[in-house]
Amino acid sequence: MSTDHGRPMTNVLFAAPVSVWEAYEAPLRDAFAQKGLSVNLATDLPPEMVDYIIYAPQSGLRDFRPFTRAKAVLNLWAGVETIVGNETLTQPLTRMVDEGLTQGMVEYVTGHVLRHHLGMDIDLLRDTPSWEPRVPPLASERKVTILGLGILGAACATALSNLGFAVSGWARRAKSIEGVQSYGGEAGLVDALHGAEIVVLLLPLTDDTHHLVDSRTLALLAPGAFVINPGRGPLIDDQSLLEALDTGHVAHATLDVFATEPLPADHPYWAHPRVTVTPHIASHTRPKTSANVIAENIRRGEAGEPLLHLVDRGAGY
């Protein structure tokens, strides 16, 4: 084992594209120093010497069997669907939860909920002058449903509730969030979506949530509802959503994530007048704040303490 002035050095492999390394190297080194960690951080280390792997799906790393002494794989992003089913991964896996990512998601969701609630597009997209006052309902009269009440969903639900919206939320198991009507299970999904005027998708992608938003669930929404998806693209069955948009049952969809990214130039979403496409920018992992989370987990691992944000392999997130 390498040492730093007599102290054992922890070997950390940064498995991510070069562009990501350039953004994260300095914040990680600073975070390690602040935690008092002696770390050999590199993009190329002998697998048998690696203690921790900082991982991004685009790294190309697929076989974790050579990393025989690795204590954990620390996912750099919030989503783990591309790695959680990897049969070669036997080490503990953590997902990224950090304050910068959470705040970014709250700002995106709140901004677009307010945009649809206030009908901003009606005025912004008008071609000719028209004095037609349209007074929106108060937030308390607008039913907003959040699908997914993990850390991101709960934070968004709380922010919208604090603005006065009538917020409901759904997860596999009902949760207790002040100001939010929480539902769980299959029957709860129907109750949460029934009559919803704005739906925000913040579920993890699993076998159970793939195409959860389809013709059946879309039919539960109030006529003229809005759909906002900053979660995972395959949560939505695209054809079902397009049909609901064409009939007007869904008035508009704001979509940040897609089954194929970048979204193909010939995809119907680009040209649809009732769709807003944003290029997967709802919330990014911020190097400075996420580096602190990574450093804290390595400190915990070296101290024999429980790791933060462990992934439940059975649940898929």
Rank of each mutant, 00 (worst) to 15 (best):
L241A: 11
V200N: 06
Q34E: 13
L124H: 14
E25R: 15
L205Y: 01
T158M: 04
I146P: 00
T128M: 02
Q91F: 11
L220I: 11
V106C: 07
A265F: 13
V199E: 05
D30C: 11
H267D: 07
F258M: 15
S168D: 09
L124M: 10
N86C: 11
A192M: 00
R7M: 03
W21F: 10
Q239T: 09
W131Y: 08
T254M: 04
E87D: 12
T43F: 00
G111W: 13
D208N: 07
T247K: 14
A155C: 11
A282T: 05
A159L: 08
V275N: 07
A33W: 08
D121V: 00
I294L: 15
H252V: 00
L160W: 04
V227I: 15
R65Q: 09
R95T: 08
A139N: 12
V97S: 08
P287F: 13
V84S: 05
A291T: 09
I294Q: 06
G185H: 14
P136M: 09
R274H: 14
H116R: 06
P262Y: 02
V250D: 15
D4W: 06
L245T: 05
T289P: 02
A159S: 15
A196L: 06
A187V: 09
A192R: 01
L41C: 10
V18E: 14
P223R: 04
T254K: 08
D238F: 01
H284C: 00
D44P: 02
E81C: 03
Q91A: 04
T206E: 04
A295P: 12
L202E: 01
V257S: 06
H284E: 05
E197Q: 13
I177C: 00
L45T: 09
L160S: 00
P287C: 03
G150S: 03
V213Q: 05
G231C: 07
A15Q: 00
E48F: 05
I151S: 13
H267K: 12
A271I: 03
G164K: 05
G85P: 09
S2N: 15
L124V: 09
Q239D: 08
I198N: 02
V84M: 08
V97M: 14
P129Q: 11
L76A: 07
R313I: 02
S176P: 00
A16H: 04
A219Q: 12
L241P: 11
A291V: 09
P262L: 14
S215Y: 03
V113F: 08
L218W: 01
Y183L: 00
V12E: 03
P287R: 05
T289C: 09
L61C: 01
R299T: 02
T90C: 04
T90E: 09
S59V: 02
A222L: 06
N292Q: 13
S215A: 11
A192P: 14
R300H: 14
R126C: 02
I281K: 01
L124Q: 10
G301F: 13
R142N: 10
E186T: 10
V250Y: 15
I281N: 10
V144C: 07
L205S: 00
H5Y: 04
R115S: 02
K175S: 11
D246T: 03
T209Q: 01
L245P: 13
L149R: 15
I298H: 07
V80G: 03
L263M: 03
